[in-house]
Design a protein around this nucleic acid. Structure first.
Lengths: 340, 340
DNA sequence: CTGAAAGCGCTAACAC
DNA sequence: GTGTTAGCGCTTTCAG
């Protein structure tokens, strides 16, 4: 592959002139510029990015990490991120951290090694360890969870949705229909995301003066299969079944639906169901799934916008954006019985 | 950020020794290695990728380009690609070419500039222009269409699914139920993908001795919205409606379903419907959508495997893999009437 | 086993 | 307007 030196030599000029001609920065006679352009074309020249990066210290890449590649939610986020980043010429590096701390640390390491200029990170669990590494980092980072480390002085931005409020809203939705036995399928309680949503459930019940019963609660992993297994396990007991189930995300709700189908439990006739994420799928399942919209695309867009501002070097104060969840009621959560 | 020079200076040794110690290549006394490691740790050292790349000429990145980021089909492909690439430490750069030639050319240009070591490219339309650029390229490329350029001597691999056969299979499926009026919603006929699938439809009809009527055919763009509009337009005419519709992909079929819903046309009672891609969604829509499985994940996996082999420098002969489509029959395409 | 030195391809300050 | 020169941070011969 030809370099600017080859072009310079061929034209009998200096490499720096070639560089100026090609980049358009710095003075250069129009005529020489034309000659350079033509020679570059003829010699099939293409600038070498690694050399450019080494010199300029920018990679024009953004790292986006997700805890589960299989979840379409992140795909929706990508749309938003890409919408914003593309016009700036940023490339997107996609990484699946598989909800594992070591992979998240690896992502952070990639940033340290300047694989990318910035990162948007989705994690179920921000903890001292990864937060600490993030704070050490020079590069701009945007998280999609609310997180304020005990120490304070955080170096990252975040955009977040009040999922706790979202789940509470679902509880209210059920309670307003006179439902009293509400079950819950969530994520791991040790994880931030899992705890937040669970607390929404718990507080929602309390607010509605409903009782919380362990046999109606399952801890799962946000996957379709996890929701399916949680469903089977719930139906397995000899205890009184709940009248309604809240799944902490749509994927689990789909799995739960599958379990219902298998066990001949009709939704919404025998059991009401709601999820969270409002995947585009949810308006097409049968029955159509009630879900809390988290505005995936909007999260992506907002996160990307914050990141771009930050990467453009405006050493802005750390900003955080809160987005509001919105309950989208569909068939799966509406009781056909008359409300009392 | 500390460099190997800083470490060398601090330890009073040479940078090359530091480099050897860190990389593990070349001789290095165990003791010095330990000292280097510790100093690196203390000084918060991280190797600079651009410098490394400039020297080694490898980026450890693979570019994946899709014609429409909104289509979940590519998301499934990513799963497969990532499964294969991740163990090798390759990072994935995702790019949306928006089904535009100029963006495809931009992707090829990225490869020329060594943004990535190789590329997997999905395009609806390989033509002389982009194929020519691909053939000029030094870097390994895998396409997901069958393509043999007129000139021969192609430099890229491809993995492909016989979509033509897949569509024919759908026609047979309908014909075997005694259906005679079969309509079609496809992509642009000027594009490779659009033409292939259309020909499957055309030949399938011929094979079954059914007539092809222009008023039952719509040219669309593989999006949900496109399918919706095609549906409306089909129902708009005063002509006799077809008994069954084949959509060239699932996304259009979903849109078509929406149009049916709106026009109070029941599927499958009033109209039979089938799509192609077999998105995971299709088993959950109402009615469940019959679809031709193209094995997205398998395509991704296969493409990635070919690419890795190629990138590992084994200057292997160009290989091509053909995958077989498989018709997955669900509710949307099965007539409730007795077959004659 | 270690060090000196060249060079990957580009940019940019500075000199002319 | 153009050329000279010195890096960016790393790897890798080649000497020692």
């Amino acid at each position: 592959m030809a370099t600017i030196y080859d072009i310079a030599e061929k034209l009998g000029i200096s490499p720096s002139t070639v560089s100026r001609a090609l980049s358009g920065r710095g003075y250069c006679k129009e005529e020489t510029r034309k000659r350079v352009m033509q020679a570059a074309e003829e010699m099939d020249y293409a600038p070498d990015q690694s050399a450019k990066m080494l010199k300029t210290r920018v990679s024009n890449k953004v790292l986006f990490t997700v805890p589960d590649m299989c979840n379409p939610f992140y795909f929706d986020m990508i749309q938003g991120i890409n919408d914003v980043l593309d016009p700036y010429g940023y490339l997107l590096i996609l990484m699946d951290t598989k909800n594992r701390l070591d992979e998240e640390k690896r992502a952070i390491q990639l940033l340290r090694e300047k694989y990318a200029d910035g990162m948007i990170m989705v994690s179920f669990h921000f903890c001292e360890e990864n937060i600490d590494l993030l704070n050490r980092l020079q590069a701009p980072v945007v998280l999609t969870n609310k997180y304020i480390s005990p120490v304070g002085k955080d170096h990252f931005h975040y955009v977040w949705v009040d999922t706790q409020e979202g789940i509470k809203e679902v509880v209210r939705h059920f309670a307003s229909q006179g439902i009293r036995r509400i079950g819950y399928v969530g994520g791991r309680l040790q994880e931030q995301t899992g705890r937040e949503r669970y607390e929404g459930y718990r507080d929602g019940l309390q607010e509605a003066k409903l009782s919380l019963r362990a046999e109606w609660i399952r801890e799962s992993d946000y996957t379709e299969q996890g929701g399916y297994l949680a469903g089977l396990s719930l139906f397995d007991g000899s205890h009184l079944l709940p009248e309604a189930i809240i799944c902490a995300n749509d994927l689990m709700a789909y799995g739960f639906l599958r379990a219902c189908e298998e066990k001949q439990i009709r939704v919404p006739e025998d059991l009401l169901l709601a999820g969270m994420d409002n995947l585009s799928l949810s308006s097409r399942t049968y029955p159509k799934l009630t879900s809390v919209s988290l505005q995936a695309e909007e999260i992506g867009r907002t996160a990307a916008e914050m990141l771009v501002r930050r990467m453009n070097g405006y050493n802005q104060p750390i900003e955080n954006v809160k987005l509001l969840p919105e309950l989208v009621v569909r068939d799966s959560s509406v009781s056909h019985r008359l409300t009392p």
